[in-house]
Design a protein around this nucleic acid. Structure first.
Lengths: 402, 402
DNA sequence: TTGATTTATTCAAGCTGTGAATAAAGTGCA
DNA sequence: TGCACTTTATTCACAGCTTGAATAAATCAA
């Protein structure tokens, strides 16, 4: 995790490893084409990395369909034995866990239902550390090299501090340091929308070219932004709590304390609360509804309940405005809408498209293709684990002093 | 203007030239420190560039204050004789022109009052080409190597096409190609807010580190975004017509056809129109008021006219919302508010700050320092000229085939 | 079995960047 | 005036890195 400058050869090694992480197993020729390196260079680098045991060569040639002439490619990939990584996502009342080996293969995963809201900082770190350690133990992982943690809020990725999070009562919680102390492993942190964006781009090469803005709608509304497949980093935080952009001067209450935020229309808690209000149910709450509760609301709206239809109509309009702002500000090549909120995309779409069209000129709108990705939340751990693996790869790229 | 890949040495030459353009004349040691190059490398590169006549060494040692011991630095800079560049900005009824030599020194500048709105594409290109040629002629420039053109609207910088501009009736005007044909010189185009952002960062080294969002308020509202001093490029256009982000669902009319856009509150034409409406003057117009008219409105508001105070109050609030969105989306290190609109910053400030505070958490707001830069519009030509010079430097960085 | 085809390796050569030694160009002071 | 000192610039041999070309390897097709 040090940051000594890399020598030219180390940089080349890093680029090679990065390409393999991004694109998966590749033959030497393919690596060369990807990186604009000569076959000679790739061969030399690969030989060393194979020697060191960082990479392994594929046994079965596993020919791709098409012409089968010539010497078959032997693809290279990371060894599985370089140590594993645990990826964690903390939601309001749920912890997702995933164990992957150094080849990126998931070895175990599970989730724990556990309300995390309103825990104090120390208490939260105790719970998390205990949960992570127990998970690693149960999964028989003896070689955990790092922990990656995604959570909602403004996350200082460099120092591992959560400046503010809807989950936490505390501000400026040094979560990474606290967990590192308890677990004895380096802990890398990431905003959850960023982790999601990264994971989705990992699975779709298209999204790794140009600029990709990834709007995650669910518990809240987050934004992860990728430039050429790399997470955009702002002045301090990665990712954005984009949901707290205020789009309406006087709108429904948001859990940030303000009114008229994007979240206050689109997030699960907001839709659920407003649906309750319609039915004259007891005091509206900001607590997170479960998937069943949300599913019921969506079904009721699909069945034609006019008040609920209106709710989704307003939400779609806000979503359209939000995407319009992203297009006008970032001018991305791709917009991804993901997260549990996509469950109601059919209900949101008409007003979403109308709002988007009404505020962007066609030339601009045409630039961004809009992808709706029905991603499940366990992708989050995938994203953060990939980031942690890449961080560990940095050490692998370093040449041991002779 | 070709884009052959540069060899390593050519890349080093390019970096050296770029550093000199950015930072101004520098001694070899300083260049080395800036670029992390060894003195030996700088010396070698500089010798070649001096040989080729691209750079010249300073005669007068011109010691900086402080210790005067040791061999004095001899600073290097671009020769003046490598050809000049004309920079142009087209406003609604004004053309700004600037001639600089290859050392970046302004040799002549002027502006022409000429309504450009509602001209057809061909006609506009004729007028511009004629104006530029006449200016170069008058200024005695025999060696114009390129023309840089900044204008409002969505500008495709790569192909030199104006997809949409408030100045133009036409869409997708191939302005660069048309001018190139008429003038026989390469023409580089840029969105005007981008040009302004670049020029301002050129004068303030702070703004060249990290991320800088530059909001230009004047005829319209544009956004130029810099990452590490380089202009951020979206999928197709540079810069953003950020003014057409819709912040109020039903607000005043904007010249884009919509309602409630940022511009419709903040731009000169909007303030002027609304001020007229208050006085029950004849039909409101979207034409651009002059500086005198705007000055009068501002003075009246400063004198306490309550309706006008309200107008600026509303505008400041919109500006605060706009900056809030920028902070939450881009998380910049610097925010620059510039352009003629800053003339009323004192009137805007209270509601600006209130709006900004009400929608960003303190941790986030604290990251971005806000600079109000009272820039005049002739900075625009400076920005676009610097960009054009850098483009020409690319050719100078190339080694002639032996 | 031979030829064709594609992938991988080897090796010498060339380009680049660097450290160390050296030269250069001044100031400060006796 | 001259010598010590300091900082800047250049030179040069050398090491690191990448590459092109030649060669080897592995397979299919006939």
């Amino acid at each position: 995790m040090t940051s000594l400058p890399l020598s030219p050869r180390e940089t080349a090694r890093r680029r090679l490893l990065d390409a393999l992480r991004r694109e998966g197993p590749m033959a030497r020729v393919e690596i060369g084409q990807h990186l604009g390196m000569s076959p000679a260079s790739v061969s030399e680098l690969a030989a060393t990395l194979l020697d060191e045991g960082v990479l392994v060569a594929e046994d079965s040639p596993d020919q791709s369909p098409g012409l089968l002439r010539g010497r078959p490619k032997t693809r290279l990939y990371f060894a599985e034995t370089l140590g594993s990584v645990v990826g964690v996502w903390t939601g309001f009342n749920r912890i997702e866990l995933r164990l992957v080996d150094s080849a990126g293969r998931t070895r175990a995963s599970r989730h724990v239902e556990r309300p995390l809201r309103n825990l104090g900082g120390e208490e939260l770190m105790d719970v998390l550390a205990h949960t992570i350690a127990a998970f690693a133990e149960e999964s028989g992982a003896r070689d955990v090299k790092a922990v990656g943690l995604a959570c909602q809020g403004y996350v200082d990725t460099r120092d591992g501090i959560v400046a503010w999070s809807p989950v936490l009562g505390t501000r400026d919680l040094p979560l990474a340091a606290g967990l590192r102390q308890r677990l004895g492993k380096p802990v890398l942190m990431e905003n959850d929308a960023s982790a999601m964006a990264f994971a989705i781009a990992q699975r779709n090469a298209d999204l790794r070219s140009g600029r990709t803005a990834c709007l995650m709608v669910g518990d809240g509304v987050g934004l992860g932004f990728l430039i050429q497949g790399e997470l955009y980093r702002g002045a301090r935080f990665g990712g954005s709590e984009f949901g707290h952009v205020r789009l309406r001067r006087s709108g429904p209450q948001c859990r940030c304390g303000g009114r008229g935020c994007i979240e206050a229309y689109l997030a699960d808690y907001a839709l659920h609360r407003d649906a309750q209000l319609i039915d004259h149910r007891p005091a509206p709450t900001l607590l997170l509804p479960g998937e069943e509760a949300m599913g019921a609301i969506v079904e009721q709206a699909r069945a034609g309940d006019p008040a609920l239809v209106n709710l989704f109509h307003a939400a779609g309009e806000v979503l359209g405005d939000a995407v319009g702002i992203l297009i006008q500000t970032l001018e991305p090549d791709h917009i991804v809408i993901c997260g549990p909120g996509t469950r109601a995309m059919d209900l949101l779409r008409p007003s979403f498209e109308a709002a988007l069209e009404s505020q962007t000129i066609p030339e601009l709108r045409a630039l961004a293709t809009i992808h709706v990705v029905e991603s499940s939340m366990d992708l989050l751990t995938e994203g953060v684990v990939m980031q942690a693996l890449r961080e560990l790869d940095l050490d692998l790229a370093r040449l041991k002093a002779a």
